[in-house]
Amino acid sequence: MSLKTDVTLHTASLRRYALVLTRDATAADDLVQETLLKAIDKADTWQPGTNLRPWLFRIMHNTHISDLRRAKTRSDAAPDLPEPVVGDHQHTQLELTQVLQALDQLPEAQRKPIILVALREMSYAEAARALDVPLGTFMSRLGRGREALRQIVSGIGKGKLSVLKRKGSL
């Protein structure tokens, strides 16, 4: 597979990841563009022979962190979810809304492992590399995050559930 083909495939993956991170199509494309610009600038740091995907995702991860520090775009953009996201089933749409809002209750360190693994684009080790954390730390954050997400969504996390209720989503 040529590098051009690789880059195209990985960019599609970056776009998916960015859409979940930003919840907004325009913001997602902005994040992808910013990531690619930085990747072009940092091309000499890529080690030929190594997997390009974790390298690109790592750049996106760092770019997104910088963006979050500059502005809390994610929460502001939440009402602009692309339509349709999961089809016409209202129940599924409601579930997705709940899961996304529950994701927002999690710390960034737990949210990103959940999203990266859900995309099924990378192995655990590659995803850990993308987030620049040891594999053990990644697995711990993934597991704790998944359980926290489940508790929030199912209403077991009482305090966080009340936050969702105040937002009028349940």
């Binding site: 590098l3 960019t11 859409l19 979940v20 494309d29 690619l36 899961v99 959940i114 995309l119 969504v153």
Partner: peptide, 29 residues
Amino acid sequence: HDNLIRQMAQAADDLPVNMRIAALERELA
């Protein structure tokens, strides 16, 4: 939950082609 998140992510595949991204892809390659 993974399935729901992945379904949302796959909505990106239906977004319009972004010519700026396509140009950056070529430059990066």
